[in-house]
Structures are given as C-alpha cells and as structure tokens.
C-alpha cells in the first residue's frame, strides 16, 4: 500500500488507468440506463441522442406489468441465495481437506472437476432433466437449486483449493505449535485468510444462479415460478424483434440486486488480512 506513495507520478496514472477501465466496463450500462428511459420512438430514432429527452418511466411500468418482475426477482433471489449457502458450506471444508490432507482423493476430485466443466453443459442438460423428472423435481425451484449447486460446486471447490494453497502452511503450524486445536486453527487462522476467496466464490455462485437461463426455461413451466432471466426473455420475439425499452428497464432492475449485493460485500475483499496473522 505504501508503494505508490513514493512516486508522485504514479497516482494520477493509476486513476487514469482506472478511469479507462471503468469506461470500457460501464459504458454499456450507461447505454442501458439511457435506453431504459427513452420512448420507443426515441430508441428507433435514426438520430439518437445520448440522453433521453425526458425521464419517462413507461418502460419500467411496462416491464413490471408484462413480466411480473417482482415475483420473478423473489424466485431468483430465493434460488440464488439457497444455492450460494449450500455451495459455500459444502465446498469450504472439502477444499481445505483436499489441499491439506494430500490423499488420492485430490486427484480424483480434480479429474472430476475438470471433466464436469469441459463436457459441454448443453449436452448434460437432457440427462439431468430426466433425472430431475424421475425424482419429481420438474417445475420446482428446488430442482433449480440442486442443478445450480451441482454445477457451481466444482468451480467453488477448484477456486477454494487455489485460495487454500495460497495460505502459507507455516501459519497454521505456528498456531498448532501454540497449542491451538485444528478446528480452532481453522476458524481463527484459515477462515479470515480465506474470507476474500470465499467472497469471490460465493459471489460467483450467486450470480451464476441469478443469471442462469436455459435450465430454468426447461424446468419451470409454472408462470408463478419463473426466474428473472425467463421474465427478461419475454421481451425478445421472433427474428430478432426486441422490445428494447422495456427490456432495458427490466435488465436494469434485474442487475441492481447483484450490484447492491456486491457493493455491500466488496469490503470483505479487503477484510481478510490487515492484522499480522503470522504472529497470531
């Protein structure tokens, strides 16, 4: 953190670089934002102005009415949160064990993780669907939770292994020498160090469940149980027809929870390691 203080030129350059990144990453959101407030006429206008001529909330009301957005958001939230809790709770101890206890399991798990990610997901959809149908989970959010959890688990395991490996084993051993039990070591030493990794992993799980479209499309028929991406698809018609205004409004509404969630949680990406853990 002290490094840039020494160089007075570095700081402005860093802000400049960050600004460039932000333009690249956020510009489409600005575009979405302005589109959401435009009337259909303005959107199709051959000479589009960047900003909408007036703030017009018709698209938002249209989006909410047409697609029952709030119900969909509630369903998505329930699904994504449950998935995230399950995946995190299951993958954390497993990842730790796989790294620290060097059993043959690790090779098996690694092989399986890679296989499950390399085999095109689109091709396992049908067998997965048949399986869920056999156990009566078609048209349920629980079915979605199971699929999303199973799909995110390999990732979570894989990434968490990376984060566990990055923690110097000496820290744990120092703690063990001090007489702390393994469980205590886990909670007091490893967990805080892993916090940023856990945040990154659970964020990933949350957002992927939040955004998943195809399996939800196939599994959910009941309109009361549709998730957000399904609701968004309502605005896309045949042959590239799109109801742009309402779609932009709905997409905006749909991505706000993710962004708020991240805004709240991003601090945790720094919280892990400010006090000297080595001396612990």
């Amino acid at each position: 953190m002290t490094r840039s203080m020494r160089n007075p030129v570095a700081r402005p350059l860093q802000y400049l670089a960050l600004l460039a990144y932000m333009c690249f990453l956020a510009f489409p959101l600005v575009f979405l934002l302005t589109t959401a407030f435009k009337t259909d006429r303005e959107i199709r206008s051959p000479d589009p102005s960047f900003l909408p001529r007036s703030l017009n909330f018709d698209n938002f009301t249209a989006a909410i009415e047409r697609a029952d957005l709030f119900q969909a958001a509630a369903n998505s939230l329930l699904t994504a949160v449950t998935t995230t809790v399950i995946v995190t709770a299951v993958s954390l101890p497993a990842a730790y064990a796989l790294v620290r206890f060097r059993t043959r399991l690790r090779a098996v798990a690694t092989g399986w993780i890679l296989l499950s990610q390399v085999f095109p997901f689109i091709l396992i959809i049908i067998p997965l669907f048949l399986l869920l149908k056999d156990i009566g989970l078609v048209n349920t959010l629980l079915g979605l939770v199971l699929v999303y959890a199973v799909w995110a688990l390999p990732f979570a395991l894989w990434m968490l292994q990376g984060y566990v490996s990055a923690i110097p084993v000496e820290l744990e051993e120092a703690s063990a020498v001090d007489g702390a039990g393994r469980f205590k070591t886990l909670v007091k030493i490893v967990l805080p160090l892993l916090a940023p990794g856990l945040v990154a992993t659970s964020l990933f799980t949350f957002i992927n469940s939040w955004n998943e479209f195809f399996f939800a499309l196939v599994l959910i028929q009941d309109p009361d149980m549709q998730t957000l991406p399904l609701a968004l698809a309502r605005f896309v018609g045949a042959e590239g027809q799109v109801q742009l205004g309402p779609l932009a409004a709905a997409a905006l509404i749909a991505c706000v929870p993710s962004l708020v969630f991240f805004m709240l949680i991003q601090k945790r990406l720094t919280a892990g390691l400010l006090s000297g853990a080595v001396k612990g």
Partner: peptide, 10 residues
C-alpha cells in the same frame, strides 16, 4: 462487476 450482473443474452 457490471458485465457480470447481466445475463449473457442481454
């Protein structure tokens, strides 16, 4: 995080 918060179709 913006690109991540949007479904691929959007």
């Amino acid at each position: 995080l913006i690109p991540w918060a949007m479904p691929p179709v959007i």
